[in-house]
């Protein structure tokens, strides 16, 4: 039983063969334009004198030139670089916009001083933080990630287990639901003073708070996922000889997983907020602490750099969760679009 008419598929092959595969690579015009924009940015950075001399202007210009060279490489090699080339080509217009943005930023800060100096940083002064203070920044990132991972793991696990339990058992739902209704919506940060008082270390208090913030959305979404499973799935499984353990593990949980992932995404979002607040107020490490420390020294360059790193960290973690979701729920491919 073939789904495709063989005659049709043969025609399709013929069509594809008409495309000149072995001809020389087509030069990507937009890519060359983007490269020109980055060369121009390098020229502005290098040749336009600064109002207040700043270090690392040369390095910034070199980085711009490297980006320009990479764009030229992609532009002239056609499809030879495979998936990388495809991605770079997709973001061609963005590459031009980024070069333009860098030039404007450079001009209004370092070159003309239009934006006042201590509060607004020039691109090279942020580069300076990355190059000179990367050890402290890197350590802060690793502390933040470890703290977040601990809290998120315990919170997600607890939320999942509670969600499954109250989704499955009427009795558990009767007792847990009112507690959840009243305590759940309370922002986890409201527990902060109490947590730092009760827990022996600020680290364990922070793990608890992050876990609390994660657990609430995960519980609610897991619960609603389990509760909304099509009743017929259970009837089918029961007539086929399924015992309660099978119904929970192989029917209820897989059917509820799409909901669970919505909860995991929401939990990750709230856990970021709690992480930063906890690090600012109690823990003596991590990016939140770095921000606080930089403010204490009026080191605004370091604050901008730390914000940038934090943005990268959070978006990377969200991307990782998306990958895990896509892998776990691969059966949804073609069904779900988010």
């Amino acid at each position: 039983m073939s789904l495709v008419d063989p005659a049709l598929s043969k025609n399709a092959d013929a069509v594809f063969q008409d495309v000149p595969v072995k001809s020389r690579p087509v030069v990507w015009g937009l890519g060359l334009a983007a490269a020109a924009a980055w060369i121009a940015a390098a020229a502005v950075i290098e040749l336009w004198p600064e109002t207040i001399p700043q270090p690392y202007g040369r390095e910034l210009a070199v980085i711009s030139l490297v980006i320009a060279l990479a764009l030229i490489l992609v532009a002239v090699t056609g499809r030879l670089l495979g998936a990388i080339a495809t991605t770079v080509r997709y973001y061609g217009a963005w590459a031009i916009a980024a070069a333009l943005g860098l030039v404007i930023w450079e001009v209004v800060t370092a070159k003309t001083g239009l934006l006042p100096v201590p509060f607004f940083s020039s691109p090279q002064s942020i580069l300076e933080v990355f190059l000179d203070d990367w050890i402290r920044l890197g350590t802060s990132v690793s502390y933040s990630v470890v703290l977040l991972a601990k809290g998120y793991f315990f919170g997600a696990l607890t939320g999942f287990i509670i969600g499954v339990t109250i989704g499955w058992s009427q009795a558990a739902s009767y007792w847990v639901h009112p507690v959840l209704r009243i305590i759940g919506p309370l922002p986890a940060t409201a527990w902060l003073p109490l947590a730092f008082f009760i827990f022996p270390t600020s680290g364990s208090a922070s793990v608890f708070l992050i876990a609390l913030a994660t657990a609430f959305p995960v519980t609610i979404l897991t619960w609603s996922g389990i509760a909304s499973v099509n009743r017929d799935y259970y009837d089918i499984a029961r007539t086929l000889g399924a015992k309660p353990a099978f119904l929970i593990l192989k029917v209820a949980i897989p059917a509820a997983l799409p909901h669970v992932f919505v909860g995991l995404f929401m939990g990750l979002g709230t856990s970021f907020a709690v992480l930063v607040v906890a690090e600012m107020l109690g823990v003596k490490a991590g990016l939140g602490w770095y921000l606080q420390w930089a403010q204490g020294w009026a080191a605004y360059n370091n604050m901008y750099a730390a914000l940038l790193v934090m943005a990268l960290m959070c978006s990377t973690l969200i991307t990782v969760l998306f990958r895990v979701r896509d892998w776990t729920l691969s059966w949804q491919k073609g069904l779900v679009r988010w």
């Binding site: 017929d232 089918i236 499984a237 192989k250 729920l329 059966w331």
Partner: peptide, 29 residues
């Protein structure tokens, strides 16, 4: 009991399982 099996109007296959795994459901249970 698996000796008496009900087939519904809707196929009600488990969407997260492949055809093979859906058919294997009873034996697995």
């Amino acid at each position: 009991d698996p000796s008496r099996i009900l087939v519904f109007q809707d196929p009600t296959l488990f969407p997260w399982r492949t055809v093979w795994d859906n058919v294997a459901l009873g034996l697995e249970a």
